[in-house]
């Protein structure tokens, strides 16, 4: 369980993070969304104990980031947006080094390294030098490094940046798998559709303020309570629009041309079925219905102004 409590960071007169709070439970994959300079990395670095908060704190499974930073570090795996790998070190040596750093008993290290290499699909590169790996492989190696001590919380800062579509898809699948393994995963990213795919929880941050937090559906519904139904009929769309305008959940109806009715609707799925039913019963020949709902990108664009600190 991760509880972030009023976390705040100031650099002189500049406030990078303005007291944000949220909590996550095991298995949650939290997408942290914000423009460059919004405060994502600062928040992640504070949770990872690399940066001292000006005020507020975060508690991971009972360990406070300020009072017990070492206990927190034992439970987290942090992958920064930019990171360097050591030259002249082989992939298994790199993982062995971090396993030793995390005080993994030497007798267990071989099996753990084999497992994380398998999980990150790097087994064939076990004896390769890290500097010889491609960017995508280095990203996966860094993720493997985060996993050698079986952390409860993974902090992944822009893990997909610089990856090709294939590597991005692999990484997405891997993160989803980690969520299924019961880990809390915090992922910051600019690629919003990707986050919506596998995150069960998102937060939108701008100028250090958490503007929205919750499940993807909740966040979308929060910013846009209605969805638009586009109903296609064979003819007489204006009359069809009038026919449904008084129904429950219908906020606004308009027709486009002779064959399209657009309905702003906030009702249930049953209510949606009732609209179709009414149109059919009234003799309109319905040929299709398409539901248009705002996505994360719409929410992000509507909530944020693009301003940075």
């Amino acid at each position: 369980m991760l509880e972030v409590k009023n976390l705040r960071k100031e650099y002189g007169p500049l406030t990078a993070v303005k007291g944000i709070s949220f909590s996550l439970k095991p298995g949650d994959i939290f997408g942290f969304i914000g423009s460059n300079g919004a405060g994502k990395t600062t928040t992640i670095r504070m949770i990872s104990t690399l940066l001292e908060p000006t005020s507020g704190t975060a508690v991971l499974n009972g360990a406070d980031i300020i009072a017990n930073p070492m206990d927190v570090r034992r439970m987290i795996g942090y992958m920064p947006d930019f990171f360097g790998l050591y030259d002249d070190v082989k992939v298994w040596e790199y993982l062995d080094f971090f396993a030793a750093i995390y005080r993994v008993p030497s007798g267990q290290r071989h099996d753990i390294i084999t497992n994380v290499l398998e999980l990150t699909d790097l087994t064939v590169k076990k004896d390769a030098f890290v500097q010889s790996l491609s960017r995508g492989m280095q990203q996966r190696l860094c993720l493997a490094r985060c996993l050698v001590h079986d952390p409860a919380l993974l902090l992944l800062d822009e893990p997909a940046s610089g990856l090709d579509p294939r590597a991005r898809a692999d990484l997405k699948e891997l993160i989803a798998e980690l969520g299924r393994m019961g880990k809390i995963v915090i992922v910051s990213s600019h690629i919003l559709p990707e986050l919506a795919d596998f995150c069960n929880c998102v937060g939108i941050i701008e100028r250090g303020e958490l503007l929205a937090f919750g499940t993807v559906d909740d966040v979308v519904r929060g910013i846009q309570p209605t969805r638009e139904l586009e109903i296609r009929v064979l003819a007489d769309a204006p009359n069809a629009a009038r026919a449904v305008s008084a129904m429950n959940g219908v906020h606004e109806v308009r027709s486009t041309g002779e064959d399209t009715v657009r309905v702003e609707f906030s009702g249930t799925l049953e209510g949606q079925a009732d609209i179709i039913d009414k149109l059919v019963r009234d003799g309109y020949r319905v040929v299709g219905l398409r539901e248009q709902q705002a996505d994360l990108e719409d929410v992000f664009l509507r909530l944020t102004t693009g301003a940075v600190n």
Partner: peptide, 15 residues
Amino acid sequence: ERARQSLDLLFSAPV
């Protein structure tokens, strides 16, 4: 190590 940006990886571990 600082220039290579590998220090953060170390100090996010219990080092």
